[in-house]
């Protein structure tokens, strides 16, 4: 019998595929968002709002990996932007291989912004790089302000954090001061947005969209 010292990162294969995906996406000049949250925080609702605001200004495509609501892809499709649904088959996170499959069925020459809606889960998506330019985590006021400290990795690694369902703030015991304090201690550089996706009375979407367009511009200038 022989013993072999392997010392390999178990996620190595994912990282390899992901760097190939990233190279391709960079070449095409596409800004990529990995959008994460628990189920029901409002990822798809935010996406609908963003698409409505931006679809005449930039070319958007969506990879839909959220299995919680099977209607999500249809909701995005109704907006008239290309969307690929990943059949996660009950998986708890997206990985590089799934993204590669999805990229194969998109026409990447016609995309400025690609949003990947990850599986609704605050834990494991944080460990899987998908080749994104930024991770954005959504937390809704109804989930409680203790989540960032409870699931620190996702909040630590996010370039932006969206506090959604602001319209319901008064109805919850969500402590906004605590939330800001915790985010600041976990990830002082994160940009924080406060939004609400209520029909016809949305809040904070314009600010978010302006910022998004800036990020896309910065990236185009750098490359």
């Amino acid at each position: 019998m022989s013993e072999i010292k392997v010392v390999a990162n178990i996620l190595h294969t994912n990282e390899e595929i992901t760097s190939q995906n990233k190279r391709l996406l960079n070449e095409k000049g596409i800004y990529v968002i990995n959008l994460m949250s628990s189920p029901g925080s409002g990822k798809t609702s935010l996406l609908e709002k963003i698409i409505t605001k931006l679809k005449d200004k930039i070319r958007i495509a969506v990879i839909e990996g959220d299995l919680y609501t099977t209607k999500d892809a249809e909701r995005i499709e109704a907006q008239g932007v290309p969307v690929v649904q990943i059949n996660t088959g009950g998986a708890c996170h997206l990985d590089g291989k799934m993204i590669k499959g999805a990229l194969d069925s998109l026409n990447l020459d016609n995309v400025d912004l690609l949003v990947i809606e990850n599986v609704g889960n605050l834990v494991c998506p944080a460990a899987f790089e998908l080749g994104e330019d930024i991770k954005i985590t959504v937390l809704s006021t109804t989930e409680g302000n203790d989540k960032p400290l409870k699931y620190p990795r996702m909040f630590e690694n996010s370039g932006a954090i969206i506090l959604n369902k602001m319209d319901l703030l008064e109805l919850t015991n969500f402590d906004k001061a605590e939330f800001y304090k915790d985010i600041n201690s976990l990830n002082a550089l994160a940009t924080i947005f406060e939004t609400s996706c209520v029909r016809d009375q949305d809040q904070g979407i314009d600010v978010l969209c302006t910022w998004l367009r800036q990020q896309i511009q910065f990236m185009k200038h750098e490359s």
């Binding site: 019998m1 013993e3 072999i4 010292k5 390999a8 990162n9 178990i10 460990a127 630590e156 976990l186």
Partner: peptide, 20 residues
């Protein structure tokens, strides 16, 4: 002070294999 610099704890590694 609150520590944000985690130097160990996220590992997912294969260490050794033994076989014939």
């Amino acid at each position: 002070k609150f520590c944000t610099n985690i130097i160990r704890g996220y590992e997912l590694n294969i260490n050794t294999i033994e076989g014939d």
